[in-house]
Write a protein that binds this DNA or RNA. Structure first.
Lengths: 305, 305
DNA sequence: CGTTCTTACGTGTGTCGTAACGATC
DNA sequence: GATCGTTACGACACACGTAAGAACG
């Protein structure tokens, strides 16, 4: 059994079972990959591919298990090489971060800035995705670190480090009556058309739960995956917005009224995660540290409101 | 990076850093292994071996990490092949069991018997060792399943399945006064010379703790790693014995008096363990099931006393 | 008929074994 | 000087690329 055979298997799966595409992505010719797959299946002595004619269209049950261990094997090999790189080309390489829109747009910029000062030779990549995608990307080593609030701590294959707590705030046009309520209650929020996140994004789960627990039905007129869209439509007068407090920017959002909502909803915890047993290079570890530092700064500044 | 290089690395470590021995154990010539190690070190770009002249004498810090991931990588590969074997040569292979003396001598025989009936083509190996060794053997894949009472659940790399509870009993020559005490107390046990297990073996830890908690100092005149030695010296009249109740055999030990001690000491739990994420072949899974069944039988028969 | 995988074949890389050399106790 | 390592070299294997053939829509 050879590592290249496993690479071919995995790339095949990630190429929707097109041998040709897998081959070109591996910088190989197609017959080479065919041979890898054939040899692997022969050595195992079991069908691992589902076929339609001579086309491969999926994995058998055995194949799924094989895929799992193939990933584990290559992950081990990758970690091994990472140990080497960490000791030699110190401070060079690639840092692949997976993050949701909220993180990428409002939290990461200052972290990235100080990281790039410390490690100018490291190429930083940010891959934006939704929480479920981020989990999968982290598990399959499509990113080195995943940052978001949901789902990360549900997967036992990941180590998730809690980084900071946040809550929501209400934004509205400055003259909107909702801003006047003392205090703002769940009922207040239900009186007006709401603009907030799509389910599964940025704490929307707990938000819906809270309304439901009080038997309330908020009138959501628009749900978006990112905060900028929400702000835009609040400015359009479509309704009042509920966003993550860390997404309210004192300077740029001065034209919007804001009220904290932390007394109404449970706090959310944003985490940073990576596969258990992954070898973290020094600059990756350093990035986590920087993120944690920045996180405490964020908390302080949004508490100030 | 090639798997054979990792095999050479691991075999080198397991051969006290003798390249020649590693080579012969791998059925290779010595220059081949030298080349593997050289290539590996070159590809990593870091020293991974500590050297004295041209002799390899140990690993650097980086080398230790490399070794860890090399093991993880090869474990993945082994699991992958196991998936294949499980689907093809169903019911053939090798089952390597690590067990303490008590398990091997008193618990396993009936399990092995029924397992061999079900899988006559599987070669069963029993490797006797102490609990700490068993943990290491399980982690390094020197055995497939490890069975003992201590230490197994302390290692996060292992899945440990609790199988059965047991406690101790007192054995003595039939006319010994200790057998007459109603009830037998810790004080009773301290009145006579004691023969029991060595620390670290077969529940000796909790035994000592219990005496210590009452401020008692039992008079241990002989400590052994296995029950047969204890029985032998009890028969010699050296003192009274404290052994695992499951090690008292109704038929063969009829010449010894016995009293349960479960009211004095905390129960012990024997576990069966294997590396997390190890692929268990069907017959391995079946062995665990058989062991669990036998375990419940044991409990019933020793409760009967 | 284009797409996709298989089969066939040649070339070049590289792995391992043999053998000679060097170092260390 | 015996043991254990490295270096040098050659033979065989094999992995990959090219090219032609076969199934599928």
């Amino acid at each position: 059994m050879e590592l290249r055979q496993l690479r071919s298997l995995i790339m095949l799966v990630e190429s929707e079972f097109s041998v040709s595409r897998a081959a070109s992505r591996l910088n190989l010719v197609q017959p080479a990959v065919s041979q890898h797959l054939k040899q692997l299946e022969e050595e195992l002595g079991t069908r691992i591919f589902r076929r339609q004619g001579k086309r491969l269209v999926g994995l058998t049950d055995a194949g799924e298990k094989v895929l799992h261990y193939a990933r584990a094997t290559l992950a081990g090999a990758a970690n091994l090489l990472a140990v080497g790189r960490d000791h030699v080309e110190e401070g060079t390489g690639v840092l692949r971060i997976g993050a949701t829109h909220t993180q990428a747009r409002y939290v990461l910029p200052p972290v990235i800035r100080s990281f790039r000062e410390a490690y100018p030779a490291v190429e930083v990549q940010i891959h934006q995705a939704n929480p479920l995608q981020l989990v999968e990307m982290a598990v399959n080593d499509a990113v080195d670190l995943a940052i978001c609030t949901e789902a990360l701590d549900r997967n036992p294959a990941l180590t998730a480090i809690p980084s900071y707590r946040w809550n929501r705030c209400l934004i509205a046009l400055p003259d909107h009556p909702a801003l006047e309520a003392r205090p703002v209650t769940l009922d207040t929020l239900c009186e007006y058309p709401l603009v907030t996140y799509v389910f599964g994004f940025t704490g929307r789960g707990h938000l819906s739960d809270t309304f439901a627990r009080d038997g309330l039905r908020p009138h959501v007129v628009l749900s978006a995956t990112d905060t900028d869209v929400i702000k835009t439509y609040v400015r359009e007068g479509l309704g009042i917005g509920i966003i993550a407090d860390l997404a309210y920017e004192e300077d740029k959002d001065a034209d919007l009224g804001v009220r904290a909502l932390s007394h109404l909803f449970p706090a959310e915890v944003t985490k940073i995660a990576y596969p258990k047993d992954k070898y973290l290079q020094r600059f990756q570890q350093r990035f986590i540290d920087l993120f944690q530092q920045e996180a405490t700064r964020i908390i302080r500044s949004s508490r100030a409101r």
